Amino acid sequence: MRITDIKTLVVNAHLRNWIFVKVETDQGLYGWGEATLEWKTRAVVGAINDLKPLLIGEDARDITRLSEIMTKHSFWQLGVIGKTAISGIDIALWDIRGKALGEPVWRLLGGKTHDKIKLYTHLGLGESTAVYDSLETNRVIEQALEVIETGYRALKVVFIPYINYTASLREVKHVENMMGRLREAVGNDIDIMVDFHGRPGSASAAVQFIKALEPAHPLFVEEVIQPGDPMAMRDIRNKILCPLATGERLTSAAEFEKYFMLRAIDVAQPDLCHCGGFTEAMRIGAMAAVAGIGIAPHNPLGPIAGVAALHYDIATPNFIIQERMEVVPWFHDVIDGHPDLRNGYWLLPEEPGLGIEINEDVAAQHPYKQEPTNVIQAATISDGTIVHW
């Protein structure tokens, strides 16, 4: 079963352009993957086109071999753009393999380890303004209750202010009050996660905010500092009482290994569209399990990314909870075969491969547009200093 072509389909979904990847074979089978990367759309599409000549004529069933080719024959060390390109192709290859064997991808990854998959979403179900402009307490509570009314039993908030290396008492108290009122409003049966988005510029500032959140018992706090400093993460973990998560911007098992070796986190958050697809994500999950660390995959992306995460979650014993966002009103129209969602859980799909098909007519109605930059340009503090979004 030889690869004959690799194509991309870009679909604009406001804050992100979804990059769908289609791998075609000489037997008529094809697979779909996703390689979405914010504000890097054209670069990722170019990287996929650069990888394509390495794979044309190769057997689509030899997925590990093809992952090795893409990684090692690129010569240069691959950053997030290259790894995202590889991820989209890898996911599509597993889709092909499942279709060829008549089995869902999760069975090929080792089979069922859960009967259903717990989900969480963001305020506004993921609409960008609701997610990233959530610093007003009453509005946050109102939107959280709206999420719960849709059936979710878990939600994530992003209400850490834009700061630099220190946090003022006013900022810390505002976060403490907001979290306390949110917990009171939703009750103790709802899981709350707090995404710091890497905004604190120092470990000490991150700890101040985490301590303010702890009385409300978050399920975990996420990306409390910028990625790449596992020693600082270990120091933070040793000073706090609630679970600590990171990983959405780590792109390989090698990068995760440093955190696992130090036991610097409690929850790993690989993104299948950035870390190398199923092939690398399975390694990351296994390494985390050995270190006693749970898995809660990152996914604010398109519908293929969500379905891929579902298959991964089913086969991952140390899975905890799955992120999901419906960022545009036509989210359900662009693919056929959405997973069955009931009471905040995904049920297990039984269709071969990923079990989805792209509606290319709907996709064509939303062509590429430049992603908006205003949401990240807001990351500036009062004295004009540029800080992390």
Rank of each mutant, 00 (worst) to 15 (best):
I96R: 04
N12R: 08
T113D: 01
Y132Q: 00
W106E: 03
T113Q: 04
G82A: 13
Y120D: 11
T64H: 12
I91L: 09
V11C: 06
D62T: 05
L78Y: 03
G102M: 09
N49W: 00
T64I: 08
E24S: 13
I96N: 06
I89G: 01
H73N: 14
A85F: 10
D59W: 10
E38V: 11
I81F: 13
L54H: 12
L9I: 11
K116Y: 02
T25R: 03
L29P: 00
T71V: 08
L54Y: 13
L119K: 03
L55D: 03
A60N: 05
N49I: 00
N17T: 11
E38R: 15
V23M: 06
A85N: 08
T84M: 11
L9G: 00
K99I: 04
K52P: 01
I48V: 15
T121S: 15
S67C: 15
I56T: 10
P104M: 10
T64G: 05
S128G: 02
A60W: 01
A43L: 06
K118L: 07
W94S: 06
K40N: 12
T41V: 08
L51K: 01
I48C: 07
I6H: 07
S128A: 15
V21L: 05
A13E: 03
T41S: 06
L125H: 15
N12L: 06
A85C: 10
L125R: 14
A60R: 03
G79Q: 00
L9P: 00
I48Q: 03
L29S: 07
K99A: 05
L109R: 07
I86N: 00
L108D: 06
G28W: 04
L78R: 09
L123T: 01
D90L: 01
I86H: 03
K118M: 13
H114K: 12
Q27E: 14
L101A: 13
A100L: 15
V80R: 00
K116R: 14
D90I: 02
D26L: 06
E38M: 10
G124L: 12
D26R: 06
I117H: 04
V44L: 11
G126W: 08
L119W: 09
L66Q: 02
T71H: 10
D50A: 12
N17C: 14
Q77H: 08
S67Q: 12
F75T: 13
T4Y: 00
H114V: 09
L125M: 15
L15D: 08
I69M: 09
W18C: 06
K112V: 01
D133V: 04
H122M: 15
G111A: 07
H14N: 13
G126T: 15
W18L: 13
W39H: 15
N12H: 13
V80K: 08
R107V: 10
K118Q: 14
I6G: 04
L125V: 12
T64W: 09
R16D: 05
G82K: 10
R61H: 08
I6T: 08
E24R: 01
K118D: 12
D95K: 00
